[in-house]
Amino acid sequence: MNRPWLLWLPLAVVAFIGGLAIYGLVVPKDDMVHSAMVGRKLPEFSLPPATEGVEGLSSRDLADGKPRLLNIFASWCIPCKAEAPYLEALKKSGAEIDAIAIRDKPEDVAAFLSEFGNPFRRIGSDSEMGVQLKLGSSGVPETYIIGGDGTILYQHIGDIRAEHVPMLLEKLQEAG
């Protein structure tokens, strides 16, 4: 063999793959699909009311000069029930929250609101998930912070917990 360095190549490859594998085991995998829309303007949309007695939601409602939260939820989603008290807390602290209900029926939404409370100003119904797709949202629940000019400023994936409330309020403050 006139190329001795070549003999060490397999060992180097093993070391590299081993390092990669250890990295994969040690660093927790980020299974979430983050929206690439953060930092951009809201897409145009206009959704009908999700149930009787609430108002529908359009992108213009969200760009009226005041920063607010946009909650993506569904009555059939269990973590959405878990985050209901924290949405309530956010509202009490002065946050304005709009919502989009995903693949939901009016009667289910009404039942959900009466059981877990209604912290929302407006609730649009996205029964075909078309707006969810435009937002780059990948599941329920998710909460966005929308700037007063209709820019998406932040995306929170998963249910809101107690520790997230101050963080969201702070970010909302910064936006205003």
Binding site: M1, L7, P10, L11
Partner: peptide
């Protein structure tokens, strides 16, 4: 890695 070590030194 043991096997490739043997490989590199012995082959």
């Amino acid at each position: 890695s043991l096997a490739f070590l043997v490989f590199a030194t012995r082959i």
